[in-house]
Design a protein around this nucleic acid. Structure first.
Lengths: 142, 142
DNA sequence: GTACAAGTTAAAGTGAACTTGATATCAAGG
DNA sequence: CCTTGATATCAAGTTCACTTTAACTTGTAC
């Protein structure tokens, strides 16, 4: 029915209209129907925007969002799409692992009551942090 | 022993010397001993920098890193520190949940072979994305 | 019909997190 | 002695992801 204004959509997903226009200009969202020049959205866009929100929060860049969500969505996922999705899946797994490490680190810091962080086993030999770094999308690590 | 040069440290943790100087100027790292003006690091800084790396990847800002890691580390965690750590723990849990949702989303997209994403149950009624957004540190969502 | 809220565009501005450039210092090797 | 390479400082530049501003059009309320 394409009944939602840009303001409605923005309000419902908790972002600003300017962000929606930006996503459109960035090729993440396809241009919606217009009535008298105003964008009119189908309610389906709410799901898409929420998916985009999740993806952003799990570390995907706008460029990656375009690759993942920018397709016309009128055809089945392509081989290129699958490639990216598989790569991203690996990275999301890595993120979950690091988040769990961070959780352990915070919990230990809260629980230990030790003589300062210097003494924490988490920062010493045998620490879960003692392994080589293995980062996701970290800029300037070339 | 404070035997590592800034270049050595950078190389070992996989970041650039400029990042280390930046962390120092930002109050995340305390200023190390200097020999002839050059920074000399104790190997312990490697653990700290790896912890900082993990924290950054789980969404903490430089300001938060300063609060968490910027202390002198010569005293036990303060009440303020505990407050922040507890808050961050909740956010990290939320991040893990969202990352799992993203994982499910990607796996579904890879597995479904449906007639385009429009048809995916993930984007329709009853989707895990159908719930209200609940974001962490999202800018401009005021 | 007039005011006002909400929409439009293009261009410029913003904040975070570093990086880069200019200039200078210093230790070691040939 | 001189060049090389790593380091130092400080200011300015860069990238990303939006937001804000300016100038203008529309739909709705009074």
């Amino acid at each position: 029915m394409s009944t939602l204004s840009i303001g409605e959509v923005a309000r419902r997903v908790g972002i600003r209209p300017s962000a929606i226009r930006y996503y459109e200009s960035a090729g993440i969202l396809s241009a919606p129907v217009r009535v008298n020049g105003r964008r009119r959205y189908d309610p389906d866009v709410l799901h898409l925007l929420r998916a985009i929100g999740i993806a952003k929060q799990t570390g995907l860049s706008v460029a990656e969002l375009r690759e993942l969500f920018g397709g016309s969505r009128d055809e089945a996922p392509s081989a290129v799409w699958e490639e990216l999705a598989r790569r991203k899946l690996v990275e999301v797994d890595a993120l979950i692992e690091r988040a769990n490490t961070m959780k352990a680190l915070l919990e230990f810091g809260l629980r230990c009551g030790c003589l300062g962080w210097d003494e924490c086993v988490l920062f010493g030999r045998g620490s879960p942090l003692d392994t080589a770094p293995d980062r996701v999308r970290s800029p300037g690590t070339d």
